[in-house]
C-alpha cells in the first residue's frame, strides 16, 4: 500500500494525543498524587488537544475531494471511518468541559466536570479503536485484517501518551515521578512486544494466490501483460514495493528508535533526556506507521502479477 504521509502523521500524532489525554484523566480522577496539579493537567490537556486536532486536520489532506468531507458522519451504522469521525467530534465537548473544570477549579473539580472527563477518556480510546478498525476490517489486506491491528494502535497510542505525560511532568515538577516513569517503561515494553509479535505474524503465508484470483487453480499462472503501458491508479495505490532488505533495515531502525532508545532515556529521566526520548519515539513511530503501510499487500497485486500477497 502506498503510504500517504498525511495519514502517517494523523495516526501517530492523534494516537499520541488520545493516549495522553486518556492517561491524564485516568490518573487525575483516580486520585494519583502526582497528577493533582493544575498546571500539569492543563498543559497535558492542551497539548493533547493540539496534537489530536493537528492530526485530524492532516488526515483531511489525503482526501481527493475534501468539500464533501462533512458527509463522512452519515454512515455510522456500517463504516468504521464514519464512526471514527463521529467519535472524534463527540470527544471535543467532553474534553473541553473537563479542561474548563480544571482551569476554573484546579485539581479538585466538581462532579459534572469529572463525569465529562471520564466520558472524554472513554471516547478517546473508542476513537483510537475506530481508527484501527478502518484498517483491521479490510479483508483485502491480510497484514491488516487481524486483531493485532487494533491492539497495536491502542498499545502504541497509550505508550506515546505515557512518555509525553512523563515529559510534561518533569518539565512542571523538575524531578520525575516514579509512578509515571514506571508506567511509561511498562507501556514501552507492551508496545515493543505487540509490534514484534505483529512483525512475526505477518510473515505467515496467505490463503489467496494468483491461482484463486484468476480462477485457474490447477495450473501455474503468470502475468503476460497488464493491459496498459504506464501505471494507473491501481498500480500507484497498491503496487507500492520496497525491497525486503530495506524493509528489514527499517524494522530494526523503527524498533530501536521508537522503543529501546526512549526506554534508555526514560531511565536517565532528566527533562532534556525526556524531550529527546519523546521526539525519538514519535520519529520511530512514524517509521513504524510507514512500515504498516509499506508491508501491507493488497490482493489486487495478484492481478498485476504477484504470485501471492
Amino acid at each position: 500500500m502506498h503510504p500517504a504521509f498525511s495519514v502517517l502523521i494523523f495516526t501517530v500524532v492523534s494516537g499520541a494525543g488520545y493516549g495522553l489525554i486518556f492517561l491524564t484523566i485516568l490518573g487525575h480522577l483516580s486520585g494519583l498524587a502526582v497528577l493533582q496539579n493544575q498546571s500539569l493537567l492543563l498543559s497535558s490537556g492542551v497539548l493533547s488537544l493540539v496534537m489530536i486536532s493537528g492530526g485530524l486536520l492532516s488526515s483531511t489532506l489525503h482526501l481527493a475531494n475534501p468539500k464533501n468531507a462533512w458527509r463522512a458522519f452519515s454512515r455510522f451504522k456500517t463504516s468504521w471511518l464514519s464512526r471514527e469521525a463521529v467519535f472524534a467530534i463527540l470527544f471535543y465537548p467532553f474534553a473541553l468541559l473537563y479542561l474548563i473544570g480544571v482551569w476554573m477549579q484546579g485539581a479538585e473539580i466538581a462532579a459534572v466536570f469529572s463525569l465529562a472527563g471520564w466520558v472524554a477518556a472513554v471516547l478517546a480510546m473508542i476513537t483510537l479503536f475506530c481508527t484501527s478498525m478502518i484498517y483491521a476490517s479490510l479483508k483485502t489486506i491480510r497484514q491488516w485484517n487481524s486483531a493485532l491491528t487494533p491492539v497495536s494502535y491502542l498499545a502504541l497510542g497509550l505508550m506515546s501518551g505515557g512518555v509525553l505525560l512523563l515529559m510534561l511532568q518533569i518539565m512542571v515538577d523538575d524531578t520525575a515521578s516514579d509512578v509515571l516513569k514506571n508506567v511509561a517503561l511498562a507501556l514501552l515494553c507492551v508496545g515493543v512486544t505487540v509490534k514484534v509479535i505483529y512483525f512475526f505474524w505477518i510473515g505467515k503465508p496467505s490463503g489467496s494466490s494468483i491461482k484463486t484470483a484468476t480462477g485457474f487453480t490447477q495450473a501455474s499462472v503468470r502475468l503476460l501483460d497488464q493491459g496498459h503501458s504506464s501505471n494507473g491508479f491501481l498500480n500507484n495505490e497498491f503496487g507500492y514495493t520496497v525491497s525486503a532488505n530495506k524493509l528489514l533495515r527499517i524494522r530494526f531502525l523503527a524498533v530501536a528508535v521508537a522503543f529501546f532508545l526512549p526506554m534508555l532515556l526514560v531511565c536517565l529521566s532528566g527533562p532534556f533526556a525526556l524531550v529527546i526520548a519523546t521526539l525519538a519515539m514519535l520519529a520511530g513511530l512514524l517509521a513504524e506507521r510507514w512500515l504498516f503501510f509499506a508491508e501491507a499487500r493488497h490482493v489486487v497485486r495478484m492481478f498485476h502479477g504477484d504470485q501471492s500477497v
Binding site: H62, A64, N65, K67, N68, R71, L81, L138, T140
Partner: peptide, 25 residues
C-alpha cells in the same frame, strides 16, 4: 457525495474502482 478517501478502492479485491485524477471522486 464522494469525498475521494479511497477506502472503497482499498476494500475492493478486484481493482474495480479507480479515482478520477481530475474530479477527485
Amino acid at each position: 457525495k464522494c469525498m475521494g478517501c479511497n477506502l472503497c478502492a482499498w476494500a475492493c479485491p478486484y481493482g474495480a474502482r479507480e479515482l478520477d485524477p481530475n474530479e477527485g471522486t
